[in-house]
Amino acid sequence: MSQETTTTSQKEDFEPFIQIKDDYNFWYGSAQVLFDLNLNIPKKQVTAFIGPSGCGKSTLLRSINRMNDLIEGIVHKGDITIGGQSIYDPALEVISLRKRIGMVFQKYNPFPKSIYENIVFSLRIAGRNRRSELDEVVERSLRGAALWDEVKDRLHESALSMSGGQMQRLCIARAIANSPEVLLMDEPCSALDPIATGKVEELIHELKKEYTIVIVTHNMQQAARVSDRTAFFYLGKLIEYDITDTIFMNPKNDQTEAYVSGRFG
């Protein structure tokens, strides 16, 4: 059934890390927003989700770390696995799942605490309070998020005193502080100016050496620049999923072609 709507390249010459499988469906109450998805996300690469507004990209992304659990009346069918383990496995605690997955939100949302405390939050809640370890994590994460040089002298000032772009990079630093395996980014640059966007994109390039990254974006150029693979969604269905160059240069599906060339969406 999914074969009718999804166009995927024949050769998947990678080892899948996140698998969305068994015809994944998702409902908010009675409204179905995801339809029969099957999708393999490669390890240590960047996968972009694109598609017109309301097509369910965020919903799928938030399904991966079960953020949707907060919403009442959600129903799903099918399965998602990370490293072979189902996220719906009753033996798996949601909290330990989320510890393996970092998330960066569309609107930067630092905690009203100091820069330092923002980053070590995930360690503190796990009871890791050793000063030397925290210091090291702060420096590593801030360097990882290309923010260290800008804030190393004001680590104990409020995070809310930073600029928007800095706050978003702080959120990235916070997401990678706990050394997760996966990094989910939901339109991380939508609130940023071109310079800050450039910095974040560079950052994504660096980060994919260590993390499996899934990024939702409305910016076609951005998807083309940062991602290795791109999935195009339309009305809750996966229309085409392939190597990014193929999607942008040589899409097999007409809707994909129309969307990436800006003719609709």
């Binding site: 770390n65 907060l70 989320r98 510890k99 970092g102 998330m103 939100f105 949302n109 905690f111 809640i125």
Partner: peptide
């Protein structure tokens, strides 16, 4: 309290 702030904490693995 903004929902984003709660979600950020939960996404960090907080109970």
């Amino acid at each position: 309290v903004p929902r984003g702030m709660r979600e950020a904490a939960l996404a960090c693995g907080a109970s």
